[in-house]
Design a protein around this nucleic acid. Structure first.
Lengths: 118, 118
DNA sequence: CCCCGTCGTTCACGAGGCTTTCACACGGAG
DNA sequence: CTCCGTGTGAAAGCCTCGTGAACGACGGGG
């Protein structure tokens, strides 16, 4: 039985159950560490919005982001890596240069607009 | 709840949320840099009016426009390019020779690229 | 107690985006 | 045609972000 159905985040092929420390990607369990889960949840709860690093850091780490701290970037990198492995063809975390990250499921370049063949 | 629904600019198929650094074109996220967003917002807030370069520059850059500074033109060009890619068939930024730019959604040429014979 | 895998954090380097500035082409006004 | 404002592609320099790896803390198993 679902302990907290209200806390479940369903986003595309992703199903995040923060209260159970569980993430399902396409029905399969996605193995994440605590920090990875926290960052993913924080982003997913702000789906569609551009989230500044400072806000993400404050939410997950509980303290203000120090200058030159790259922790957020590192975890975004690891999450992208795991998400891409679990759900190829989709991209979830988008970079907004100078602003932050935005969580939203989108098809990775479906087509590759290459030049016409010889 | 949307933190600043009052700050949202809706213009045709465009939805600009300056406070969130986010622009939606036809429902899709339009990726803009800081300057691009600032110039677009400044123009959109003056919708329908002819805005002199000097006013645009002062608003966005916060300093008086120097002679021979083409920054405004360059960013208008980039915005036109991105807007046209996102919403083909529409033109938003119109040039008023010798005066400045005017922001207003209008249909581009009703016909497609096919040239009209004489 | 020691070995070893996991995790969180930080570092270092390189790739790539952003702003500004040029240089030149284009086009309207007189 | 000539002048000058505008369109446009690209270079230069700076800064952000991506990425692989190192380092130490921690904990389970033997």
């Amino acid at each position: 039985m679902e302990a907290s159905r209200d806390d479940v985040l369903r986003i595309g092929e992703l199903e995040i159950r923060p209260s159970e420390f569980l993430v399902l990607a396409g029905g399969r369990v996605l193995s994440l560490s605590l920090r990875e889960l926290q960052v993913l949840s924080a982003l997913a709860r702000r789906q569609g919005r551009i989230v500044p690093r400072s806000e993400l850091y404050a939410t997950v780490w509980g303290s203000p982001l120090r200058v030159s701290d790259r922790s957020v970037d590192v975890y975004v990198h690891r999450l992208r890596s795991k998400l891409d492995e679990a759900l190829p063809g989709w991209s979830f975390i988008h970079t907004h240069f100078g602003f932050g990250y935005r969580f939203e499921p989108e098809h990775s370049h479906p087509f590759h607009k290459t030049a016409t063949p010889s």
